[in-house]
Design a protein around this nucleic acid. Structure first.
Length: 387
RNA sequence: GCGGCUAUAGUUCAGUGGUUAGAACGUCGGCUUGUGGUGCCGAAUGUCGAGGGUUCGACUCCCUCUAGCCGCC
């Protein structure tokens, strides 16, 4: 039996909608997964994620949770679900991206990465094996292989080396992952009908903007065999057109019977454009990070609540949004909260942004089911660029 | 009433007899894509309290006035 079940229910061009079943929740795709790096989606209570927002899966991060509170503490407390009380699905990032984003604090070798903790400077070592062990302790539904993410503008030789190491690390990840599953060290194991109850493991494609390397990375990754396939190394400094070009080239060649996950992307426009090219899963910090700094995503484009023009504006953030923030609070009030440094500003704007992202994905799915995704995409992009 | 101190950006304050007077905070605007964002980048704003004098040149030195603060009768 498999750890996850994935069924496409409708297709429109390359865009697909489907049902992903994990041991903990049923997820309709295309799906946006809110990011909960430290075991919390910043500023958003689980009650809201479960009820109003109805998020079926969120992210957790190996690197950050390993540093604090530590994998052993979480294992002792029964895993990340039990520790945090989030009972729906979790996808955990492997720490590979932190190798890239914290690169001034690292030393990279074939064996793995030596870091200094950004919290207290302690020397730490992360490798495919260690990452799998931590993710088993966290007990997430979807585990990511430990990869290396090259800069978006890396030249072909650097990218090739990075991709080859990622492929070797992918195999090591899979081997250690299988051992851990067999040793029953996954804290999230669940007896469930028609599924193995185990964790799923996703491979990651690299290759930056080089199409031939993307193809090579795909072949190497599929050869190992995973439950799902992610596209990594995009939106990391390259031109936006490069991202679309890579997606258009690689997504349709990826296995059709497994979910395709575009890591770390993106803006609402990016999500729609990636679905159009065949992507099923997304995660991004934008709704919560931007929410914390006063930037709201709306169906009529982006809006910065700090702007003086909102000081007397009694309209909601987005008058076409039915979220609980838009039903109740005005731009003027939200601006006041932001300007006075009240934490509620970040909470409310993050909430709205997540509502907007999740609602957009709902509309994307509906339009694919109706065979009207092309129309939706045109109208959506047009409306977003109005402002 | 007498003596002293102070007066410079919205605020708190630096500053020098010599090009376009600075900082911090605030204000205004931008950035943020597998979360080091309580961050990062940029911009605007001054009759240097008022009036007079000395000087080639005064925000700076001198005089008068005004306002505030402190002390003494």
């Amino acid at each position: 039996m498999k750890p996850i079940e994935w069924k496409v229910t409708a297709q429109d061009g390359e865009a697909r909608t489907g049902i992903l079943r994990t041991r903990r929740s049923i997820i309709e795709t295309p799906v946006f997964m809110p990011v909960g790096t430290q075991g919390t989606v910043k500023g958003v209570r689980f009650e809201w994620l479960e009820n109003e927002l109805d998020a079926r899966i969120i992210l957790g991060n190996t690197y950050h949770l390993w540093i604090r509170p530590g994998a052993e503490i979480i294992r002792e407390l029964g895993g990340l679900h039990k520790f945090s009380t989030w009972n729906r699905s979790l996808l955990t990032d492997s720490g590979g991206f932190q190798v890239f984003s914290l690169s001034d604090l690292r030393k990279l070798t074939e064996e793995g990465v030596e870091f200094r903790s950004h919290v207290d400077g302690t020397k730490m070592f992360l490798s495919p094996e260690v990452s799998m062990e931590i993710q088993a302790a966290l007990g997430s539904e979807i585990v990511m292989v430990f990869d290396e993410c090259a800069p978006g503008n890396a030249d072909i030789e650097v990218t090739r080396k990075s991709l080859e190491m990622t492929a070797r690390w992918a195999l090591r990840s899979k081997n250690r992952f299988d051992e851990l599953q067999n040793q029953k060290l996954d804290t999230g194991f669940l007896e469930i009908e028609n599924l193995s109850g185990r964790q799923a493991l996703f491979g990651i494609l690299q290759g930056a903007g080089h199409l031939e390397l993307r193809k090579e990375s795909l072949e190497k990754t599929v050869e190992i065999g995973f439950d799902g396939y992610a596209i990594g190394g995009l939106s990391v400094g390259e031109e936006k057109s490069v991202m679309y070009e890579v997606l258009e080239f690689i997504a349709p060649q990826m296995p059709k019977d497994a979910p395709r996950y575009l890591m770390g992307v993106g803006t609402p426009e990016d999500l729609v454009e990636a679905v159009y090219r065949g992507v099923d899963m997304f995660d991004c910090v934008l709704p919560t990070r931007n929410g914390r700094t006063g930037a709201a995503f709306t169906s009529h484009g982006k809006l910065n609540i700090r702007n003086a023009k909102f000081a007397k504006d009694s309209e909601p953030l987005d008058f076409d949004c039915a979220c609980s923030v838009c039903l109740r609070y005005s731009r003027a009030y939200l601006r006041h909260l932001y300007q006075t440094g009240e934490m509620l500003a970040a909470i409310l704007i993050s909430h709205h942004n997540l509502a907007f992202f999740l609602d957009t994905m709902r509309k994307v799915r509906d339009s694919i089911k109706l065979g009207k995704f092309g129309e939706f995409r045109r109208d959506f992009l047009n409306e977003m660029s109005n402002n």
